[in-house]
Design a protein around this nucleic acid. Structure first.
Length: 607
DNA sequence: GCCGTTTTCGGCCCGACTGTTTTCAGTCG
C-alpha cells in the first residue's frame, strides 16, 4: 500500500491517541497530533519527497526523531513505536475516548481498576454499578458517563453526513469519468438526507459491470474489499448472482438484504474506514433498483405491500410481475406502477408519506433557494473568525438578502462573550456597516445565554435595541427535567426573545439532548410566538426531523440558521434545509423564507 | 515530540469553571 499523506496522518493520530492513554508526555502527544493535522493538509507527498532524497526534517513539525522513524518506515514498512503502543493500548480502548466525560486519564483508570478496555465492558460496568469503585467516578460523573455512553452507542459505527460528502464526491467524480458508467446515483441514507450513516450506497447504471469494477480498483483513495461482478454484460436482472452480504450497521436493511436477488456490487473502503457499496444495474430496471436502494426498510416494506396488492413483487431489482421484471427506467415509472406520485427521497421513511401520497397531499418541500436570509452567525466580536462585513459579503454572494449578526454574551466566557457595553458597541457597528453596504440588510442581534436559573445574560435595555434576540443554553447541561424545562420556558417568556437556538442542545453521537419536556416547550413556543431554530451545524442539526414535523403540525414558527463562525460555514444552510425536508417542512413553515420585513414581523410577535 | 536559540534546554498551552479532589481532568463554543 502506498504511504499517502492521508495514511501517514492517520498513523500519527493513532500514535498520539495511544500515547495519551498510556500516559505519554503531553507535549509529545501534541507534537504527533499537530503533525498529523499538518500532513493531512500538505500538498507535497512526504513519501515522494523521501524517495527523491529530500530532507524530511525540513518539513515543519518533523524533527530528528520523527525523521528517523519515517526513514525506517519507508525502508522497512514498520513503525515500531506504534507496534509497541498497540500492544499496550488496543484499538477497542481508543474508542472509549469518544465518550464524553472520558479522557485519557479516566480511560486509564477504568482499565486499571476494572479491566475495562472496550465499550461493551464499560457498558457492563455501568449497568452493574461498578463504576463507583473507580477513583474519579463519583455519582454525578458516573451518571454523566452513563448518559454519554448511551448517546454514543446509539450512533456507534455511524458517520456524520459532512464526513461522507468528500468520499461521495470522490466516487461520483471517478465514476463520471468511466466510459462504461451511465447515470450514477447516490442512494441509501445519504440520498434520504440522513444526518449520519453506516456506509455509502450508490447505484451505477451500466451494461458493462466489469469495467466499473476496474475503474474503482484504479482509484487511489480506496481499497476494494470485494466484488460480485462476474463476466459478461448486464442485460437482465441478475437473479443468479451471489449475495454480497455487504451492509453493516443499523441501516443494514435500507440497501440490500431486504429481498430476493441482489444486484452485483463492488465494495470499497476509504482510509477513514468508511465503506461504500456500489451496485450495478442495467438501464431497463434502473428506476426500480434506485428506488429500492434509496427507501428505508420500512418504506420499502410498505411499497412491497402495495406491489403485492397489484400481484407484483418488489425487491432489489425493482418490480416483478409473473416472475418477470417490470421495466422502470426512472423512479417515477416505479411509483406510477404502484399508483403513487414520486415521493421525495427525504420522506421515504414510512412516517406518513405513503398515506400522504395516496391522498394526493405530499408536501411541496422547502428548497434551499426558498431561504432568503440567515439569522444566526458570529463575528470576531466573540468567537467567529470574520468581520461583520466579511460575513455580509459572503452571505450576499450566497444569494441572501439579509443576515443577523448574533455574537455570544458574556457568560460564555470561552467564546469571548460580549458585556453589555461591548454589545452596545457591536449594535452601533452593525448599524454603521449596514448603512454602507448594498444588496443585503444586516440586522443587529445577539445569541443571549440562558443562565442556570433561566435569567438572560443581557439587560433589557440592550435586548430592546436588537432586531433579532436569540436565546440558547451553553452551560449546566445536566439539569434534571423539571429544572431544565422551567429554565428554558422562563427564557422564552421574556418578550424580547425571538428565537430559541439549538433547542435540545444535542451533539450527534456525543452529547444527549437536554432533559427537556418537549411537549411543554412546543406549547410555550406557540404561546409566546418564539421561533424554534433548526441549527445547520452538521454536529447539531437541532431541531431534528421529528421535531420539525411536530413544529409544523402545531404551527410553531421555525427558522433555519447556520450558526456560522466563519464565512465558509454559511454554506451549511443546505444541511439545515435537508433536515427540514426530512421533517416535511414547506416554505410556509419557515420564517426566513420570507423577505426581511415579513420575517421581522413574524419574529416581533407582540408588536 | 518540535522549535528557536540567549547553542543546550526551556517553552510549548484558549482558559475559567466544575466536579472531585486536595492537585487535577475534562469541558464549553
Amino acid at each position: 500500500m502506498r504511504a499517502t499523506n492521508g495514511r501517514l496522518s492517520l498513523l500519527f493520530h493513532r500514535v498520539a491517541d495511544r500515547l495519551e492513554i498510556s500516559g505519554g508526555a503531553t507535549f509529545q502527544v501534541q507534537a504527533y497530533r499537530r503533525l498529523a493535522d499538518r500532513v493531512a493538509g500538505m500538498e507535497e507527498s512526504l513519501h515522494e519527497r523521501w524517495v527523491a532524497g529530500g530532507r524530511l526534517s525540513e518539513v515543519p513539525g518533523i524533527g530528528k526523531a520523527i525523521e528517523a522513524k519515517l526513514d525506517a518506515l519507508f525502508r522497512t514498512g514498520t513503525f515500531p513505536l506504534l507496534q509497541r503502543l498497540a500492544q499496550e493500548v488496543p484499538e477497542s480502548q481508543l474508542e472509549l475516548l469518544h465518550i464524553r466525560g472520558l479522557g485519557p486519564a479516566r480511560v486509564r483508570a477504568l482499565a486499571e481498576h476494572l479491566g475495562v478496555r472496550d465499550v461493551e465492558q464499560l457498558r457492563t460496568a455501568v449497568e452493574t454499578g461498578q463504576l463507583a469503585q473507580v477513583p474519579g467516578f463519583a455519582e454525578r460523573t458516573a451518571d454523566r458517563v452513563h448518559r454519554s455512553l448511551f448517546e454514543y452507542m446509539s450512533h456507534r459505527g455511524r458517520r456524520l453526513r459532512h464526513l461522507c460528502d468528500g468520499p461521495m464526491d470522490t466516487l461520483l467524480r471517478r465514476l463520471s469519468t468511466c466510459p462504461a458508467a451511465g447515470a450514477v446515483h447516490p442512494v441509501g441514507s445519504y440520498r434520504r438526507g440522513a444526518e449520519d450513516m453506516a456506509n455509502l450506497d450508490l447505484v451505477v447504471v451500466t451494461t458493462r459491470p466489469e469495467q466499473i469494477a476496474a475503474c474503482l480498483a484504479d482509484l487511489d483513495a480506496v481499497e476494494v474489499l470485494d466484488e460480485t461482478v462476474s463476466g459478461g454484460t448486464l442485460r437482465d436482472p441478475p437473479d443468479a448472482l451471489v449475495p454480497t452480504g455487504s451492509d453493516s450497521g443499523r441501516d443494514r436493511g435500507d440497501a440490500g438484504r431486504q429481498g430476493d436477488a441482489p444486484l452485483p456490487s463492488v465494495r470499497v473502503r476509504f482510509d477513514s474506514g468508511l465503506v461504500a457499496v456500489v451496485r450495478l444495474c442495467p438501464p431497463t430496471i434502473a428506476g426500480g433498483a434506485i428506488a429500492w436502494h434509496t427507501g428505508s426498510r420500512a418504506h420499502n416494506a410498505r411499497l412491497r405491500e402495495l406491489a403485492s396488492a397489484r400481484e407484483m413483487s418488489y425487491g432489489p431489482t425493482g418490480l416483478r410481475a409473473g416472475g418477470r421484471p417490470v421495466r422502470s427506467r426512472d423512479e417515477s415509472a416505479l411509483y406510477a406502477a404502484l399508483g403513487l406520485p414520486e415521493i421525495p427521497p427525504e420522506l421515504r421513511e414510512d412516517r406518513g408519506e405513503i398515506e400522504a401520497a395516496l391522498d394526493g397531499r405530499l408536501p411541496q418541500l422547502l428548497r434551499r433557494e426558498d431561504v432568503q436570509g440567515d439569522l444566526h452567525m458570529h463575528t470576531r466580536a466573540s468567537d467567529g473568525s470574520g468581520s461583520i462585513l466579511d460575513m455580509a459579503m459572503a452571505a450576499r454572494a450566497l444569494g441572501h438578502s439579509y443576515i443577523a449578526i448574533t455574537d455570544h454574551t458574556q457568560n460564555v466566557r470561552i467564546a469571548n462573550g460580549l458585556t453589555p457595553e461591548r454589545a452596545a458597541a457591536l449594535i452601533d457597528e452593525v448599524r454603521r456597516v449596514d448603512s454602507q453596504v448594498e444588496g443585503i440588510r444586516i440586522l443587529a442581534g445577539l445569541e443571549v445565554d440562558i443562565l442556570k436559573d433561566g435569567a438572560l445574560d443581557m439587560p433589557e435595555e440592550i435586548l430592546s435595541r436588537l432586531d433579532v434576540a436569540i436565546a440558547s443554553i451553553h452551560s449546566h447541561f445536566d439539569q434534571p427535567l423539571e429544572e431544565m424545562t422551567a429554565r428554558v420556558l422562563k427564557a422564552l417568556e421574556n418578550p424580547h426573545i425571538h428565537i430559541l437556538a439549538h433547542p435540545t442542545g444535542r451533539l450527534i453521537g456525543q452529547r444527549s439532548p437536554l432533559q427537556l419536556d418537549m411537549d411543554r416547550l412546543f406549547q410555550a413556543a406557540l404561546q409566546c410566538r418564539v421561533s424554534l431554530e433548526i441549527n445547520s451545524n452538521p454536529e447539531r442539526l437541532d431541531l431534528d426531523d421529528r421535531h420539525c414535523r411536530i413544529a409544523a403540525r402545531m404551527g410553531v414558527p421555525v427558522v433555519i440558521s447556520t450558526d456560522a463562525h466563519s464565512t465558509s460555514q454559511l454554506e451549511n444552510l443546505s444541511r439545515g434545509v435537508l433536515q427540514a425536508r426530512r421533517g416535511g417542512l414547506e416554505p410556509k413553515d419557515v420564517a426566513n423564507t420570507l423577505t426581511c420585513g415579513e420575517a421581522l414581523a413574524v419574529l416581533r410577535r407582540r408588536g
